[in-house]
Simulated scan of single mutants.
Amino acid sequence: MSDPSDAKDDEAQLVRRARRGQEAAFAEIYRRHARAIHSLALRLTGNHATAEDITQECFLKMLQFLGGLRDGTPLRPWLKRVAANAAIDRIRRDRRLVAIEDDDTQPANGSDPLLHAESLGLLRRLSPTERTVVWLHAMEGWSHPELGRRFGRSESWSKSIVSRTLARLRLELDEAHPHDNE
């Protein structure tokens, strides 16, 4: 079994090689992280084309800032933050994004495929803003103050979005499965 620190060292070597302009190193970084970044962007925007654009923007931004990243900094959290910020910018700019089929996103290893399908169905019911705020808070660990600042709103706005959205989803689930509560 490989040591997790080996993977971190390996990624640090890839970053150093990419900084020196080695295309193969950048390609390997892209191969390792693009799917996760695309999945996050798709979940946040609900739009395949937008998710693809955000993924590309994210890696282009990484190329620009590669020299400024601290050695040993894991790339995925940084890339996810860049992708989330890009998705928020798109949502703020274009409130007309609509949810679409995103069945090609993969469930977490070992998760129940039926639960995955139901959760995707729930995400599709949300507006882009609701989906983004709830996902970033619940799944990516963003705080309410961070979300409020990033959306140009207050901390209480973020709390309210999460609270109302989760309450509405719970109600919809209770209505869809009335016997589960007995």
Results as ranks from 00 to 15, higher is better:
89 D>T: 14
67 G>Y: 05
31 R>L: 07
52 E>Y: 02
61 K>Q: 14
79 L>Q: 05
4 P>A: 01
51 A>I: 00
76 R>D: 02
11 E>H: 06
2 S>D: 10
56 Q>R: 10
179 H>S: 08
20 R>Y: 05
74 P>L: 07
57 E>F: 04
126 L>C: 11
173 L>I: 11
94 D>W: 06
157 W>D: 00
5 S>A: 15
161 I>N: 09
116 H>N: 10
16 R>P: 06
89 D>N: 06
98 V>W: 00
163 S>D: 14
156 S>L: 06
42 L>N: 10
169 L>C: 08
94 D>H: 09
22 Q>P: 00
45 T>P: 07
89 D>P: 04
82 V>P: 00
142 W>S: 02
80 K>F: 12
128 P>I: 05
11 E>A: 07
101 E>A: 12
166 L>F: 03
127 S>W: 00
158 S>T: 04
27 A>V: 02
113 P>I: 03
116 H>Q: 03
73 T>E: 13
182 E>K: 06
28 E>Y: 04
123 L>G: 08
128 P>Q: 04
15 V>P: 10
57 E>G: 07
150 R>E: 11
154 S>I: 00
43 R>C: 14
6 D>L: 14
130 E>M: 07
30 Y>H: 08
132 T>L: 09
107 P>Q: 02
99 A>D: 10
104 D>Q: 10
91 I>Q: 06
72 G>D: 05
59 F>S: 06
135 W>V: 12
30 Y>P: 03
7 A>P: 04
20 R>G: 12
47 N>M: 01
151 F>P: 09
23 E>S: 12
158 S>I: 06
48 H>L: 07
29 I>L: 15
129 T>D: 06
132 T>E: 07
40 L>M: 09
126 L>M: 15
31 R>S: 14
31 R>A: 14
124 R>K: 12
34 A>Y: 05
131 R>A: 15
138 A>P: 02
55 T>W: 03
39 S>L: 02
180 D>C: 05
114 L>D: 13
146 E>T: 09
159 K>Q: 12
67 G>R: 00
102 D>V: 15
32 R>H: 10
24 A>C: 06
118 E>A: 14
172 E>Y: 07
61 K>D: 12
3 D>P: 07
116 H>L: 01
176 A>Y: 03
147 L>V: 01
49 A>T: 08
110 G>I: 00
83 A>L: 06
170 R>V: 02
182 E>W: 03
73 T>P: 04
125 R>S: 13
88 I>G: 09
51 A>R: 06
74 P>A: 10
50 T>C: 11
135 W>F: 15
109 N>F: 05
59 F>W: 01
80 K>M: 09
98 V>N: 06
126 L>I: 05
90 R>I: 01
157 W>K: 00
54 I>V: 15
59 F>I: 05
34 A>V: 08
79 L>T: 13
21 G>T: 03
118 E>Y: 10
32 R>D: 12
127 S>H: 03
104 D>G: 09
61 K>G: 10
166 L>V: 12
4 P>T: 02
124 R>S: 14
131 R>P: 01
116 H>V: 01
15 V>A: 11
74 P>F: 08
56 Q>Y: 03
11 E>C: 08
50 T>K: 14
48 H>E: 12
33 H>T: 09
131 R>L: 13
